[in-house]
Amino acid sequence: MQIVVKNISKDFGKKKNAVHAIKDFSLKVDHGEFLGIMGPSGAGKTTLLNMISTNERPDHGQVIIDGLDLTKLHDRDQAKYRRNKMGFIYQSFELLDSLNVKENVILPLALNRSNKKLIEERFNYMMKLLNVENLSDRAIDELSLGQRQIIAAARALINNPEILFADEPTGSLDSKSATILLNYMQLINQREKTTILMATHDAFTASYCSRVVFIKDGVVFSEIVNPGDRDKFFEQIINMQRTIGGGNYFNVSENN
């Protein structure tokens, strides 16, 4: 699915207190691309993701996916589009505490009123793929943070979304859990050709992407394309972070 973002902007607050979160922002994401969005805190990463995923409406501009301008759709149709074509992974997981693991994972399919057989099949497939079959009947508060994020990923992917949005997906995870999750995301991207948009401020996480766009103060600062070598790509990202924020924003020391 090709995503074209044309001159979108978003302000928060009113009059004198207004904050320009996104200013005249344009972006193109190709089908099956794994795009990273980086920038310091408050740069507008989450706002950008929210607007592309129709969770927020831009004040101006267009978000066109496969020729369809989502900003022109009614709230109800946007919700339907979101449900059918998109998956979401958040830093805070956004799992429903009252439901158990299985119910959380199958929620998108249940919402679409898919048939029971398909629900069971997809659930078993996802649990196997993510290697968490033993967690099916657990309650959410019985899971570790890493397990919660894997379950959130399973929910995001169960209905074969064409676009996956991930907002700081590894923010709450230790490095081991983060690596597992990122490997899964890469696997999904390569196997299912799912377009992934991931906002992060972590260079290691971003190194899994095929391209990283850097934003600062609501505008595109620069972008780097993965050369095929992850270590080299990681270096490039670190350098760009230094350029943007003198290294302080990202907790990376000058000596690194």
Partner: peptide
């Protein structure tokens, strides 16, 4: 929060 989560994952307002 649960209601907000539902909205985030595509549950309609109605």
């Amino acid at each position: 929060r649960q209601l907000r989560t539902l909205q985030k994952i595509g549950v309609e307002e109605s």
